[in-house]
Nucleic acid binder design. Structure first.
Lengths: 336, 336
DNA sequence: TTGAAAGCGCTACCAG
DNA sequence: CTGGTAGCGCTTTCAA
């Protein structure tokens, strides 16, 4: 592949001049520009980004760490970062880190090796301290979907507890009295906090939720189905079901209907996340909107700032987001 | 950030030696290894992949060009490539190119600048010739979801025509006599070929499909809904509907049911792609499985081979895939 | 087993 | 406005 030297030689100028036209540098004669551009075209020249990154110490690259791309939630996250990359003429480097600390760490390390200017990291398993140390090393590091007080200015997160409360209020307002929950079996904060917020708000209204009406499963369609079966097997009736995420909620609806319950007439079902799926299901799923794409864009932009300016750490900055209730068809008023 | 020189200095050896332990090079004393590793840890040293890429002339990077990440189909494609990247200890570089030739070209160029060893490209708008020239320049280039005879050994593609035929056979076998189609309004090969295969097979069975019962729309939920409305507005009845993709098919089902038609009892609906959505819809969607993830993995592996070995161009190689019928609940036997 | 040194392709500084 | 040149951080001969 042709290099800058080839271009220089064939156009009879110095590499310095070629570099100048490459970067729209100042003070280049029109004649030189034309000459060089012509040769570049002839040679089919493409500058080497690695060499550039090496000398400029910036890679024009945004890194993302997520578990995988198949989960639409993470795809949206990546897409958000991709959008700002595109706008800034940068590239998206993707690194997947599964549910273990080692795997997350490795994914991050690969991004550091590539010297990403910005890294948007979704980590659930790495400890606070490890992440804090990492932030110390990588100026453009931003955490998404996680809150660590010491580096709050690098955390873009959703208030899951508040989400649970909003869910409870919605169902309460719909005159429901008997509740069930499906949560995720994975021991990360999110499901715990959502459930906690939900229960707290219920208690404030004087309603308790029976422990046996809280089930756990894998956070996907099948998990929702199985948890619902267990719920039904228990035999105690309920009129409102709050589910950890949309995929599980759709699985739950499926199982409920298979068992003769009409949603929402017999049972209201409320999801969480508002992924594409929720608009495609029948009945269309009522859910809490998790603005992950915008959050990802915000995270990327914060990382960009952090990596360029030496921002003074304004610890007052707060990147907390509150989920928004999206009322569709799977929840309705309970006539008593 | 610490460099190899820092490590060399602090451990009292040459950079050459440090490089050797970094790469598990041969002939390094145990003592040196330990010393160097210790210092690397102390310094929190991370090698610079850009510098490495520059000197080795390989970036250990796999590039992917797709329109976006939000479409689950393309997310699966990217995920396939990501899997082989991970297995080979390489990284995924993502470049989005929307539906224009310029945009696709730019996305590809960015990947070339980065000197990706392998590029899996999904391009619908670039001309055959441009792609052929590109393949000439980039040894690891592979096209996915496209067939160009001159570079057949770099094309991993699906036989859309055959897909249409399979669809027709399925519906015919189910005793259907009157058909409708929903296609995509985008003028790329895929929808045309699918429709063509479908119609051809129908004709072979002596059945014609009325032109007014072929509608076009955006390839998403709303597009499917609108196309279905137009179909119904036309007033002519049909018992089987073949739809361009799953999202449109789900939109179609939604509209059909809103208009009092039961799927599949009144009308059978058959989708295409077999994305996640199709398993979540009610009724579960019968569709044609497009093994995009495996195809993406294959494409990545082919690119890897192409980029390393100087494979002799075995033009007999054929990477054609045939979609597989997945019968779920949205199609059923038509009792006449 | 180790070190010195050349150089990957490019930018940026300094002279001119 | 242009050219010469010193590196960026690393790998890889070639000698020792």
């Amino acid at each position: 592949m042709a290099t800058i030297k080839d271009v220089a030689r064939l156009s009879g100028v110095s590499v310095a001049s070629v570099s100048r036209v490459l970067n729209n540098g100042p003070k280049v004669s029109k004649k030189t520009i034309e000459k060089v551009l012509k040769v570049m075209k002839e040679l089919n020249y493409t500058p080497n980004a690695n060499a550039r990154a090496l000398v400029t110490q910036k890679s024009t690259t945004l890194g993302v760490v997520i578990p995988d791309l198949v989960d639409p939630f993470f795809a949206s996250l990546a897409n958000g970062v991709e959008q700002v990359a595109r706008k800034k003429n940068m590239q998206l480097l993707l690194s997947t880190g599964l549910v273990t600390a080692e795997s997350e760490m490795q994914a991050i390390n690969l991004l550091i090796e590539r010297r990403c200017d910005v890294m948007v990291v979704h980590s659930k398993k790495l400890s606070d301290q490890v992440l804090i140390d990492l932030a110390n090393k990588v100026s453009g590091l931003v955490l998404i979907d996680r809150y660590i007080e010491e580096i709050a200015h690098r955390c873009v997160w959703l208030d899951n507890t508040e989400g649970g409360k909003i869910a409870a209020r919605h169902l309460l307002a719909l005159n429901h009295k008997s509740f069930a929950c499906i949560s995720s079996k994975y021991q990360i904060d999110d499901p715990l906090l959502r459930l906690q917020g939900f229960q707290n708000e219920l208690q404030s209204a004087g309603v308790d939720i029976e422990p046996n009406l809280i089930e756990y499963g894998d956070p996907n369609l099948q998990g929702g189905e199985m948890a619902t079966q267990k719920l039904l097997a228990y035999g105690k009736s309920f009129s409102a079901l709050f589910v950890y995420n949309d995929a599980m909620a759709i699985g739950a609806i499926s199982t409920l209907e298979d068992n003769g319950f009409k949603v929402p007439y017999d049972i209201s079902v409320l999801g969480f996340d508002d992924v594409l799926l929720s608009r495609y299901s029948r009945p269309k799923l009522s859910t809490l909107n998790y603005p992950i794409e915008e959050m990802a864009m915000q995270a990327a932009n914060i990382g960009l700032e952090l990596s360029t300016k030496q921002v003074e750490l304004n610890l007052n900055k707060n990147y907390k987001h509150i989920p928004r209730l999206v009322k569709r068809e799977s929840t309705s008023f309970k006539s008593s």
